[in-house]
Write a protein that binds this DNA or RNA. Sequence first.
DNA 1: CATGAATGAGTGTTCATTCAT
DNA 2: CATGAATGAACACTCATTCAT
Lengths: 245, 245, 245, 245
Amino acid sequence: MKKNGKNGKKEPKANPRNGKKDLKAQQREKNIIEGALKVFGEKGFEETTISAISKAAKISDATIYEYFSSKEDLLFSIAKLYTQEEFDRVMSIVPYIHGAKAKLRMIIQAHLEFYENNRLYTSVALLTLKGSRNFMKSEAYKIIKKTTNTIITVYNEGIEEGVFRDDIDPYIVRNMTLGFIEHLTAQWLLLGRPANLSAQTDNVYSMILKSVEKDVDQNAMKITIEGFDVQQKKDTIIIKAKKKK
Amino acid sequence: MKKNGKNGKKEPKANPRNGKKDLKAQQREKNIIEGALKVFGEKGFEETTISAISKAAKISDATIYEYFSSKEDLLFSIAKLYTQEEFDRVMSIVPYIHGAKAKLRMIIQAHLEFYENNRLYTSVALLTLKGSRNFMKSEAYKIIKKTTNTIITVYNEGIEEGVFRDDIDPYIVRNMTLGFIEHLTAQWLLLGRPANLSAQTDNVYSMILKSVEKDVDQNAMKITIEGFDVQQKKDTIIIKAKKKK
Amino acid sequence: MKKNGKNGKKEPKANPRNGKKDLKAQQREKNIIEGALKVFGEKGFEETTISAISKAAKISDATIYEYFSSKEDLLFSIAKLYTQEEFDRVMSIVPYIHGAKAKLRMIIQAHLEFYENNRLYTSVALLTLKGSRNFMKSEAYKIIKKTTNTIITVYNEGIEEGVFRDDIDPYIVRNMTLGFIEHLTAQWLLLGRPANLSAQTDNVYSMILKSVEKDVDQNAMKITIEGFDVQQKKDTIIIKAKKKK
Amino acid sequence: MKKNGKNGKKEPKANPRNGKKDLKAQQREKNIIEGALKVFGEKGFEETTISAISKAAKISDATIYEYFSSKEDLLFSIAKLYTQEEFDRVMSIVPYIHGAKAKLRMIIQAHLEFYENNRLYTSVALLTLKGSRNFMKSEAYKIIKKTTNTIITVYNEGIEEGVFRDDIDPYIVRNMTLGFIEHLTAQWLLLGRPANLSAQTDNVYSMILKSVEKDVDQNAMKITIEGFDVQQKKDTIIIKAKKKK
DNA sequence: CATGAATGAGTGTTCATTCAT
DNA sequence: CATGAATGAACACTCATTCAT
């Protein structure tokens, strides 16, 4: 962004976010976002021109500015919309999932499926937004954060439930989970490998699970054998006949 | 990239990569890369101007084009140089590390330390290069790939050694490892959390290890008790007295 | 002006006002100013496009920005150049003119001739610059001011010499003089009346003179009549026969 | 003016200047003009947006076009309204003023007072309208002209009355008078000097008067001396004894 | 080699104006 | 009438890149 440096965040002229916003306008806004998504997704931010977006949305350049205050605002608005929708979708599923492990799996699955089903958005999110120094200051980012925080919540639930280790910083868990998912997704996006993203759900889930679940260690198996002394060590069990008196 | 760029990979006018390249030239090239690193690292690709780089390197705009064919070439060259150097450094350590686990740990440590000690490059690598659609086609990317492939090599070594599970796609392991590391690094870079990156080495290592190491499961313990039949299941051991004949 | 609000006064890249500035550059700068003068003079500031100027100067749009930091800077630079040149010209004449009245006349004549001989600049100065809220803050304006202050100097000289009234605020004299000249010039410019501007020199001069010169009152005429007593009052002369002894 | 303006003087859609124009509409038109005056006065023509005016007038952009055919039309309409009102005001005073000198003074006073009391309009008139190449072709300009012609009328009256010199082109007198007044006003407007504009009435008046009034020359003093022939020339009086018969 | 100087090509954003409702 | 919404038409300014010296 260069030009017109003057302004800062300036409400677009005709985007009265006053709830009732009539349907045509709402539809048009959606249209623009779809168009923008398409172009941003294919070309990236800098390579995308407003004119290309307006063409894709079949409206005029100027009209875009009725709905969004700048090219960047438009970019961030895509994230806001998609993330909010996805967040709502996931949240609506949550009540049906019981247990932290199942929730963890669900989160992974939801992410992978979402990315897989929204290739263009994925491109925007992983290639463009992640590199944006301004995105993190944006409104949209807050929603993203809310979403990713569910991983922390679920992890903590798992600790409560006694299924997850309690010796890891939850932020690290989130880092691992998202890092894994996003890196995998990026490979899928750019290299086409794996071919099927959501099919990786269980692979990802099981690996992360290994990292976070409480060890099913031998302490969990109390071995008693009549007439024998049983000593359980880390990875050795010593069974000796009881000494006769 | 817009402008003039008739582009097409075009050898820079006066950069005879003919081995003997005199020292002054070599030094100057290094200079330019340092300057570019500084500016790219602070502003990102699009916000960086050639003129800013030339100022930082204390040479003229035109001279940059004696050494690099384009702004993008310069960007990628940074990656090439840094990655190569880091790769060499790591490779020089390898012989002193024995065992796949130790090597895995070393790779994680090397990455985190490198990122921590090269903040500007980290910024370029994670924020700029990762989002570049052209980077993957570049010469520099091949070197990166070579580097990241060591993770796969090490993982395979671990399988050979019997310390890593053999039921995971090595690419998934690489994805997890790099995804984890890079996500963590990005958080450090952008949010300052964790404050100390390389200090996370063991946390990261242990979590990844959990995911990939061979289960210290009961199969690893062959239990035989004279006079008894021992059946080992996943987490149950059934010990019955042998039937007398 | 819209765009790029950021900047303020930013030295154009390649306008090293370092004295020696080679001739080609100097010539080119002159060229641009001539081109700009032509277009500004014909169309006014807002109606003028940089592209029209660059066409008139037979160089590229971008080159203009090598010499001037903005469209407005270019506009003001015209004034700076012309005023400075004219100021120098007038100053070189001054030594040859003696007496405040003659100097006043010369100033009027110089103004009218200059305007008449530089119709385009006159258009820019009277129609465009005079309405510019920024011009008064510009460097160029200072030179203008220096020029117009000569009127005050001359007026004060006239007071010293005893040819001008000493009961008028010199600033008012300047206002009257310049106001008269400029209004007349504007009529000439826009309506073509009077047809010949500099021919009005004496008309203007004599009218202004009437306003500022010391009354040629009866004190200037010493009346003596033999055999009579003559008393001269403001507008009465009393002549009485001398008393006979 | 750029943009859409297919222009061509085109009657505003819904401004049936058919006399009966209802009061609400009349009021609204006034409203718009007041709003426009405020914004034009503060920002100048190009910097002023229709939207800013509509905001100031608390109506919609489109409504402005119901009353005025273009931004420029609106600008000129301000002048028309103000000038007409001022003209009417002055004309209503005229009958009470007798003598060309007094009228001349009144005109000067009226101008200065009007400018002083209508700072915003003054700004528009002196900074914006005076530089407009189109204004002179406008309807509004005719009214202005009618107004300024009173100076000529009064001057001619003065000649008739024998109080003004008859050897000056009346247009020159108008030029001097208006030039003086406007230059002084511009200084007041932009530099705040003089602090009090209308207080300059007498200064201005007396200076202009000096320029135009008939010399209180010796012709005004009829000298007769018994027994002598008195010849009065410009600044010489020749008194000769009458020839004895 | 190094560079000063020139420029082609590009684009986000603004805003006066229109018109369907 | 009043207006919300849409848009066509413009343009100042930037910068990567080239090339003569």
